[in-house]
Amino acid sequence: MVEVAVFAVAAAACLVGAIGVVLSRNPVHAALMLVMTLFGIAVLFVAQEAHFIAAVQVIVYAGAIVVLFLFVIMLLGVDRAAELSLGALPAQRWTAAAFGLGGAAVLIWLVAAVDRLFKGAKSLALETAGAAGAGAGSDPTDYVADVSALARSLFSDYVYAFELTSLLLIVAVIGTVILARRSDGADGRRVGQHGADGRRVGQHGADAAMAGSSSEAGR
């Protein structure tokens, strides 16, 4: 009973958040709705006894990534309600609808397939859970084993994938730094001729970029 209630509340939060992300006209509201979805998913993780994943979900996604989204939204000053009425491409609606329906179909098929898979594997899963429960009992350290199991598979079976991911992240960081510095320098010299005050170059550049994008959208 409790499980069903928890699932219902968390799933409702997820769905409301997800729909809200799409429907909000204000980017900050959309980001907040995304946070609600992430929290709902974290609760679902807790309901599945994946406490560590839930904590990481909140710390990394809600605590870092969406905060960065908000940061960018606030710093770029695009926090006015976006004008959605203009700027649609000719066949955009139909293409979007087709892709959306296709995505939904694939998702439903996936859920059905996984469901079938798990029905077959259910007895096995129950057996393993029973064995683990018997071994660990009510030992308070039994969930640390959960963390260490995660660490073990991450640093042994999937160590190459793990290291490659960290390499990818480092490349992304270095690339960002180089791009940011280069464009800053180039813009600084170009726009600096107009404005005497070098400090406002960034502001000018951003304004120019926004004007460019909005005129493009207008076309």
Partner: peptide, 14 residues
């Protein structure tokens, strides 16, 4: 909770 001290980090980031 099993995540213990991680809850502090989660709450301080929220």
């Amino acid at each position: 909770p099993p995540v213990g001290i991680l809850l502090l980090l989660a709450m301080s980031s929220v």
